[in-house]
Amino acid sequence: MPARSSLAVAAAALLSACAAIPSAWADAGQIHVYTWADYTSPELLAKFEKETGIKTTVDTFDSNDTLLAKLQAGKSGYDIILPSQNYVSIMIEQGLLEKVDVSSMPNYKNVDEKWRKPEWDPSQSYTVPWQWGTTSIVYMADKFPQGFKSYKDLFEPADGIKGKIQLFRSQDGMLEIAEMYLDAPFCNEDGATLKKIQKLYLDLKPHVKIFDDTGMGDHLGAGETTVALWYSGNAYQARVSNLPNMKYAFPKEGVMGWFDSVAIPKGAPNLENAKKFMNFVMDPENIAIESNYAGDSNAYSASKPFLDPKVAAAEELKVPEGVPLKFARQCPPKAAKLASQVWTSVLK
């Protein structure tokens, strides 16, 4: 899942400073969870604690990069982490995760067939599906009734939305969107395509009001912007709470998906307890608690009866038939470097 809010960033920075040596707290009935801010349902953790007697402690991070850096730095002391799909593959490759053979856990049967053995964990030895969602364009239907059918509507903006657009500032997803529009593969290393992407964004830049990963709902609500990139779960929550006119677009070229998993870092102090948590999460009733809390989708059809009807009905969470759902991969170093070069040149 991409970054949440800057306030959360600040809070996370504080918390992680306090959590320098969490392993010191390790004892029998405990797990230490490292997760995104405002993301993990307290109700879910309470239920886990009640059922197993295992106490949970929560620390938060602001981005996958922070999480990765922490693991790379050595013994983190955490038992449970929630990385996104593209980082899972890096962590597996770099040997940062504990191999726990998820497919043999009792509750594994609840995982939907289509989400088993995903490309980022082909043997399902490391991760348990947590939540997933998409990143796409939101717009105020009252001010832009024609709506978004294609990324063309973004890259060749109509007069009504010129100067009213918010994009991300971090490069997460930005290149992928252009690649989908150009029908090019992700993680491009082709100079000509990259040049095209660069030009697309340089041409779009004068019409962009804000490059920021946060504040989408505020700016849309205040009328500063009409169009923004956002995450499906946040979009759903904002619509039901204060932006009834906001719509979530599924452009025909495809939407970008993100998929967060439960994983155990190598050398976790409470390995057995962490495994219990994994199995606990795969219970449909339990995972529904999290989906209701975060407003995201999950990989357990059996959880439907336990879902909040509003979440179950949310348009934002249903990728229409015929719209490809594409998960970003972690690009190899060369492509990643080229991507950051493109994005830096757009922002400067």
């Binding site: 800057s6 981005s63 990069d65 500032r169 971090s170 490069q171 997460d172 830049k205 962009v208 009001k209 804000i210 490059f211 920021d212 946060t214 504040g215 170093p333 990643a336 470097k337 950051s340 994005w343 830096t344 922002l347 400067k348």
Partner: peptide
């Protein structure tokens, strides 16, 4: 970033970007 709309890349942004998503 916040009240400038992030349309101008500054020193600090550049550093943050390199340690962050640019790896």
């Amino acid at each position: 970033t916040i009240i400038g709309g992030g349309k101008t890349l500054l020193f600090g942004n550049l550093v943050a970007l390199q340690f962050g998503s640019a790896h």
